[in-house]
């Protein structure tokens, strides 16, 4: 059982740093925790170097909280802002090249399935809109076509944040950003529609306005990926730097965007629906 990797050898606890003493004694591993438990346990991610008030950082924190089995989860990320905090989390984090997240996740998922046929291992890609809709597009789509059983979470800040604000495929049409000097000339890529066409089992679109919704969405996405097929969550996580949103206005912006064009949306396959229903029934018993 993987929790052994969190058992301090006898006699060594007193030499361990505080954060590890806390993680071992008050961490989330092997426990069923709810949103309301936040603040009562040591979270997977606390300190990180993302910008102050960044919506993406907030979203990542909640997404990690939602993982149903963090002790059996691997996170795959790539170049982009999200990795700054993901690499600090108490969860194995894989960083390959920019574009390769969904290929790497495929290999990880299949490798783990071979080595641990009786222990479900969750693989979750968490990457930017550029990483998934532009440079990594082909691997995202083909992972879906192949029905690879892992979750893809897009941190959609509608721009290349990490490289200083260039246009991405997910930037809105007409937006003037770097490398789009006269405004973006084509529509935001419809990744939701593409996911549907590719037969993704669970698709969700959301903004960070509602923490419990983030948690339930991510949890569903991970569980369905474990049992049914690929899942995709597209989260609006504004970049306050590139879109000049003052930190205190981040949630206001998210609410506005949610109302105008980023409303909560779930597309669930029949098989995934049946799985969720069975889960619910089991829960009630």
């Amino acid at each position: 059982m993987a929790l052994r990797t969190l058992q301090v050898s006898p006699g060594f606890m007193r030499f361990m740093p505080k954060e590890y003493q806390d993680l071992v004694e008050k961490g989330p591993f092997g426990r069923k925790l709810k949103l309301s438990d936040l603040g009562t346990y040591k979270e997977l991610l606390e300190e990180h170097p993302m910008c102050e008030g960044c919506a993406m950082a907030f979203f990542i924190r909640l997404a990690l909280t939602a993982l149903p089995a963090p002790e059996h989860t691997v996170i795959v990320g790539t170049a982009g802002c999200g990795r700054l905090s993901l690499s600090q989390a108490a969860i194995p984090f894989v960083y390959g090249n920019y574009c390769d997240t969904n290929g790497v996740a495929t290999g990880i998922k299949r490798g783990l399935a071979l080595r641990f046929p009786d222990q479900p291992k969750d693989v979750v890609v968490i990457a930017g809109d550029g990483g998934l809709s532009d440079i990594g597009f082909s691997q995202v789509m083909h992972g879906w076509f192949r029905q690879e059983k892992f979750t893809t979470v897009m941190l959609d800040n509608e721009v290349y944040g990490n490289t200083g604000g260039q246009e991405s495929g997910m930037t809105k049409r007409g937006e003037v950003v770097k490398m789009a000097p006269i405004g973006k000339q084509f529509e935001k890529i419809d990744m939701i529609g593409l996911a549907k066409t590719a037969g993704v089992a669970y698709i969700a679109r959301l903004t960070p306005t509602n923490p419990s919704r983030i948690i339930s969405t991510i949890r569903k996405a991970v569980l369905i990926a474990r049992e049914v097929g690929p899942t995709y969550v597209q989260a609006y996580t504004s970049c306050n730097i590139e879109y000049s949103i003052p930190p205190e206005k981040v949630l206001e912006d998210a609410r506005q965007v949610e109302k105008e064009r980023y409303g909560f949306l779930e597309i669930i396959s029949d098989e995934a629906k049946a799985f969720l229903a069975a889960q619910d029934a089991a829960h009630r018993e």
Binding site: R4, T5, Q7, F12
Partner: peptide, 21 residues
Amino acid sequence: PGPLVLWAWREGVADKAASVL
């Protein structure tokens, strides 16, 4: 001490950790 002795993740580690102490 590195992860392979700090964490009693498999048989033999606790003994090795004891030898380090």
